[in-house]
Amino acid sequence: MTNKPTMGSKRVTSQDVAKHAGVSRSVVSAVLNGTRGIGVSAQTREIVLASIAELNYQVDAQARSMKTGRSMTIAAFGDTAHPLFIRLLEGMQRAGEREGYHLLLCSPKSGENREEDREGRHKLLDLYRQRKIDGIVTLDDTSYADSDWADEVRRIGVPYVSVEGYAEENSISSVHADYRGSMETALDYLTERYPELTQAQKIAPEYAEIESAALGGKVNWAEQQRKTGYLDWCSRRNLKPHATNLLQQNGHVNWDNWLQVRAEQHARPVLVNWSSAVLDLYRIARRFALEIGEDLPVMAADNTIHGDRLSVPTLSCMEIPYADMGRAAVEILLRRIEGETDRPAKMWLPAILKPGESA
C-alpha cells in the first residue's frame, strides 16, 4: 500500500493546499473552519476538499490551539462498561476528528453510584476552567435531569450537550432518540406484514413492556414515550390495544405463563420494548413448540445490543442510532464552542427499521 503524497519529506501546509487548489490561503481556512465573512461556493469548496485529500493535509491541532486559545479537546463522559457508550464514542470520534478535535474519555468509578457520577462531572468543570477541555458531552439515562448540574453548567458557561438526558428541559442542549416515532414505525410495519391479524380483526399488535426489577417499579422517560406512542397509534387507527407487563429479574424474563396462553391460540404479532428480553422468549418458545416468525411473529422496539445479529431467526427491530446521536452531539457542541449560537438545541433522531425473519 502506498501513502498519499506529502510534498516529499516536507509537511504539507495550508499554503500548499491553496496553491494546489488555485485559491487563497484564506479560502482554505474558511473551508476548514467555516469562517464567517468569506463566501465560498460549493464548487470551490469541493476543489479545496479534493486538494486536501490528494495532498493528505492534516490540520495542525497544536498550531490551531495556540491561535484560538482552545485545547481542541472534548470530554466524553459516561459508563465505559455500558456498550451503548462505546457506540456513542464512535460517532463522537468521527465528528470531532473532522474538525481537529480529540476526545478525552471520562467515566465514573461506578455507573450505579450517583455520588461518584456527580464527582466525576465536577472534575470536568475543573478541567474546563483550566482550559484543558473546550466542552462536554455526557451519555445519560433517559430520565436524567439533575437541576444542580444544569445550574453549574449554565453558571460556568461551559459548552455542554446531554445525550438522552434533559428531554423536557429546554435550557440544556440534548440529543434523543425519537422513541414515540419508532413505535409508530414498528407498528406500521407489523400491520402491513400481518393485515389478517390486525386490520381484518381490528386488533392491534400486542405490546409486551418489560420492566426491570432493579428499578423498583420506576418507569423511565423512554418507556413512557413508547407506551404513549403505542396507545396513540391504536387510538388513531381505531384498533383495540393490548399491552402486557413482564418483569425482568437478574437479566432474565419468565415468559412461561405468557406463552402458555399463546400456545393455545393463533398469536397476534408482539412488539417487545427491549431486544435483550427477546432472547429468553426465543429459548422458551421452543418448549411450547412455537416457531418464532411462523407461529409467533416477534419484533423489538429497542435494539441496543445487536440482538438482531444474536438471534435465529434474525430479529426484526428498531435500531437506536447511538453513533449518529454521538455525531449530532459533537456537531451541536462545536457550534457552541465556535460561538455560532448560545441557544440550547434539541435534536430528535429516528430509530432505524431493520426487518428480520422473526416478523
Rank of each mutant, 00 (worst) to 15 (best):
Y230A: 06
W255P: 03
S110H: 12
D308M: 06
L197T: 02
L127A: 04
P355K: 10
R193G: 02
R226W: 04
D342G: 09
A53R: 15
S26M: 14
D140G: 00
A359D: 09
N303A: 10
A277I: 06
R131P: 00
R336W: 00
Y101E: 13
A21N: 09
G251L: 05
I74N: 10
P321L: 04
S24N: 11
T185Y: 00
M318K: 04
W255A: 07
S235P: 00
T2V: 14
S182M: 12
Y179F: 15
I284E: 06
P108I: 11
G307F: 01
H102C: 11
L296E: 01
M318D: 02
L187N: 08
L259R: 04
E196H: 12
L88R: 03
L197M: 11
R36E: 15
L89F: 03
Y194A: 10
R36A: 15
T6Q: 14
S182P: 03
S182Y: 06
G157E: 07
Q93E: 15
D79H: 10
T341M: 04
V28G: 06
A42F: 08
M325D: 03
T13V: 09
V23K: 05
S212G: 06
D232R: 13
G135T: 04
R327H: 11
A42G: 09
G100K: 11
S316I: 04
M299Q: 02
D16L: 03
D295T: 05
Q43R: 15
V28A: 06
R155V: 01
L353S: 10
Y166P: 12
S14E: 10
V158L: 01
C106V: 14
Y322G: 00
I352K: 14
M92H: 08
K346D: 02
A214K: 12
K240V: 07
F288D: 00
L315M: 07
W255N: 03
Y207Q: 02
T228W: 01
E211Q: 05
P269Q: 09
C106L: 15
Y144E: 08
L55F: 13
L290T: 00
L349I: 09
Q225D: 08
L103G: 10
D178W: 07
I52W: 08
G135P: 05
D60V: 13
A213P: 00
G229A: 05
E357Q: 14
A329G: 01
I156R: 05
G216C: 06
V28K: 04
R11P: 11
M7T: 15
S235G: 04
V278F: 05
D126K: 09
G34I: 03
P297G: 07
I47T: 15
R268L: 13
P321T: 05
N254H: 10
A345R: 08
I352Q: 12
E206G: 14
N113L: 12
A345Q: 14
K109S: 11
A213C: 00
S24M: 03
V27I: 15
A61M: 11
S162V: 03
